[in-house]
Design a protein around this nucleic acid. Structure first.
Lengths: 228, 228
DNA sequence: TATTACATTATTGTCGACAATATAACAGAA
DNA sequence: TTCTGTTATATTGTCGACAATAATGTAATA
């Protein structure tokens, strides 16, 4: 039901930023590639100023890197970067789960349970629905429950897009669906019991497993290409 | 000895960004204040474009907030925001300590010990040296030891400036100097023993204490003013 | 041939002006 | 007076052009 929506882009820079972000996450602008401001400008039909603003924001969320007087390039996909990213995510989402256990209202816990039930049903039909949106919804729900705006910002507008970049570009339609759902259930239970300590620990494990899965996939695909 | 240095600003936007950041952290541009692009432009003697770029980067660091077609304003100092900030910091620096215990070289551990000894000496002279730079150096050292670039970025270019903003503007020359030093010693010991679990836990406590201290100060000063 | 110095080209950084939007000021009606 | 609708003003968003810097290519020299 509650698939997340970005607030609608109002300014021209917003649109360009969102389009570029999507293109990068989906690999249509390949990892590691140099970005030409003028090229992007007339590709998106806007002025260089708005492209520059978009690039600035993309740098802010660490999807691209910039060196003065030289230019910007999309970050490279690497095992190290993936590892570092997931270490940060483990830390932050662990804290989110902890805070959710403390701060979620009874209603919110109910919603979370309903979400879980919904997933348990739909997963039987072998739909790929759960795989993407379902997982996102789950983590989103807990994150909101933390009631920590700073944390929410950091994950929603930063980490998540980077992780999705790896997921998408590594072609993740992984086999961990069933396992993940079981882990989700335990986390929700801990939150319902207001056991902050346990909720954090379980969430951290959950993310650590996902990390291992991605690393394995990355290794298996690594027939030696890190594009420049 | 190794007080941290930003890499020298090359472009005009860099300088403006750094100056504005400092002005905000030190409260010379007061918290919650609306920012006029034109005013800033001729105050710093640059064009509006560079001010806009600086503002964009300051937004990326969460030192200012922006609403489209309306403008930017410095974030407000509030008990909630402080709390949220320190929850994030606790999480991230805890992870940093954990990783440092795993990844620091023997030399780096030695450096850390030497740093600690140096502080133990200088603290006798009741110099305020330790209070600011010393503490920063300590956390910086461990952060580097984590070897996680993403983590380093997040803390160095984001969280630290926001926390310093509270410290400076609340006039923190706090009484926790001695206590903090003892905590530092325990953390270093855990890292030297390669006890990642303990290092993380001690660091988290250390930060949680600091948070409480700041919250107390904030409450005591709160004669009802959150500036608009 | 390899290398250095210089000139050329392309790309980014900065600027001032115009367009679009929001805020403020004002006038009129209930 | 208070509210509403309209006009005026100020501020932000966008653009194209110029300046400054880096990357490239070329010629001259060892």
């Amino acid at each position: 039901m509650p698939t997340i929506a970005d607030k609608p882009p109002v300014t021209s820079s917003d649109k360009t930023f969102l389009e570029m972000r999507r293109a990068i996450v989906e690999g249509r602008i390949p990892a590691g590639q140099k970005l030409s401001e003028t090229d992007l400008a007339d590709h998106y039909g806007v002025s260089r100023a708005v492209v520059r603003e978009a690039i600035g924001r993309l740098e802010g969320i660490r999807l691209i890197e910039r060196t003065p007087n030289v230019g910007a390039r999309v970050v490279a996909l690497s095992a190290d970067a993936l590892s570092e990213l997931y270490e940060v995510r483990e830390s932050l989402e662990g804290m989110a789960a902890r805070l959710a256990a403390l701060n979620m209202t009874a209603e919110e816990v109910n919603d979370l349970n309903r979400l879980l039930e919904h997933h348990e049903k739909t997963i039987g039909g072998s739909e790929t629905y759960y795989q993407e949106d379902g997982d996102v919804d789950f983590h989103y729900c807990i994150l909101q429950g933390s009631k920590n705006r700073h944390l929410i910002e950091l994950l929603m507008n930063g980490i998540y897009h980077a992780t999705r970049m790896y997921r998408v570009q590594l072609g993740m339609a992984g086999p961990r669906v069933g396992t993940a759902l079981r882990e989700h259930r335990h986390i929700v239970q801990a939150i319902a019991n207001r056991d902050a300590e346990l909720a954090e620990m379980l969430m951290r494990r959950h993310i650590a497993y996902t990390k291992q899965e991605l690393e394995a996939k990355l290794r298996s695909m690594n027939h030696g290409d890190t594009r420049r």
